[in-house]
Amino acid sequence: MNSQMEQGPRFRHFVSPGPSVSVTLDGQALELPFGVMLAAALLDRGIATFGVSVTKGEPRGPLCLMGTCLQCNVLVDGIPMRACRVAVRDGLVIERRLDPLPPSPREVPRG
């Protein structure tokens, strides 16, 4: 994993979270507390970058955490979902989009 992607605020849980379960993030195994909001669980692990912006590829992370801003969208078991709306459970396969989505090459027709 790109180390730059793991920069960000460290979070801590002041309430003891539940038992840990195994998930994968971008193909790597990770232990996260069961039942916790996925976005909070990832932030707890120092993961603040949830993807990159579509054209410029700049790091983006959760903003509103209320389901409105869609900035925390990740692929959960292959389906794009808001990480603020997903509870951690065993075996989640989480993928972040870490490359921009460049538009199709345009043709510049010669008249």
Partner: peptide, 17 residues
């Protein structure tokens, strides 16, 4: 990353983080 809504930080707080 690391810029949150005030409401967003409060949601996290209510989740214990």
């Amino acid at each position: 990353p690391g810029v949150f809504g005030l409401g967003g930080l409060q949601v996290l707080l209510k989740a214990g983080a």
